[in-house]
Each structure stands twice: as C-alpha cells, then as structure tokens.
Amino acid sequence: MTPTPTGRVIGTDLVLTRQFAGPIEDVWASVTDPERTARWIGRWEGGTGAGSTGRLQLGFEESAPWSDFTITACEPPRHVAVATADDAGQWRLEITLEQQDTGTLLTFVHHLDDTDGVGDIGPGWEYYLDQLVASREGRPLPDFGDYHPAMSEHFAAQVRY
C-alpha cells in the first residue's frame, strides 16, 4: 500500500497530525517513554523536564546516529517541545496531544528556519509518524522507500515564494 501524504506547510512550519484510539496518557507514553520511542524513532537518554538535555539515537537511520536535544517545554500529557542539534543541523520540534471523544489527536510541528528542503523533510516525518501508528497498532513498520521521493512534490508544491 502506498501511503498518502497528509502534512501541510504553513508559513515556515511543517504540520502533521495523526489520530489514535486510546487515552491521551497512553499516547503521551508512546512519544516520551524511551522504551516506546525506540519502537518508532529511536531510544533516548537524559532528563525529562523543561530545560533538560539528552541524546536520541535515531534507530531507523543509516548508522543509527545520535542527536543532542534540549527539552524547551514539557506539560504532561499534552505538550512537549525540543530543540535538536546534529550533523543535519538544528531543528525545533513540538508535539501537542488533545483528548477527543474518539481518542487522541497528535499534532506534530517542525518549525523550519526556511522552507528549503521541505520536500525531503516532510516525507521523513510522514514516515516516522506512520511508524508511531504502526508500533501502537502492532503492525509491521513501513518502508521509507514508499515515502521518499514519492511524497517530495506534495511538500515542495506547498511552498510559496
């Protein structure tokens, strides 16, 4: 099955959402507990509150590189924001959770410095968030080859110059 891109470029923010069956506390654990993040993005070590620092090992990237992070905001179980730094540069990321009648809505925002490269960045986040979905549902993880470059135009076409 070919995945369908859902992300939007709003100004210089890349915004993606996913809906989960389950309470907000369980989805929060999926995005903050090191054992559970290892299932879809990678394991991490370090502090847990705003101002804390740590390292995330990107478990699904070639050579499984480490990325340093600082937690810039943490309001369990609704919001976490981090600033990361690695060989790819510095990124500002946020996850907001909202309890709904049907489960929990996750909104992911990557605050871009500019929209250069969004055609490569967007498919990567679609892939990782679909890995989160698959890991929570006990399904096989997706293949990155189904996301990039197939989704690149979806994101690049949203950029306004």
Rank of each mutant, 00 (worst) to 15 (best):
T37Y: 02
G42C: 02
G42A: 10
D33H: 11
S30V: 10
G22T: 04
G124W: 03
T107C: 06
W66M: 14
G124I: 04
T53L: 10
M1C: 10
L93H: 12
G119M: 05
E45R: 13
H111L: 08
T104H: 03
D114I: 06
M151E: 09
S63N: 15
P76W: 06
A29F: 04
D87Q: 14
T32C: 05
D87E: 14
Q158K: 00
Y147F: 11
W66G: 14
A81W: 01
S135I: 05
R43N: 15
D68S: 14
F144V: 08
W40S: 08
R160N: 11
S67H: 08
D114H: 13
T48I: 13
E137H: 09
G42N: 02
Q90I: 12
A88D: 15
G51S: 07
G119H: 03
G22E: 01
T6I: 09
S152E: 08
H111G: 08
Y147A: 04
L129R: 01
W40G: 08
R8H: 11
I10H: 11
P3C: 06
Q19K: 11
G103D: 06
E98W: 03
R92P: 04
S152K: 09
D86N: 12
T32W: 02
S135W: 02
S135K: 01
W91E: 14
T104C: 10
P23M: 12
L14A: 03
D143K: 08
R78I: 08
H154Y: 02
G11V: 05
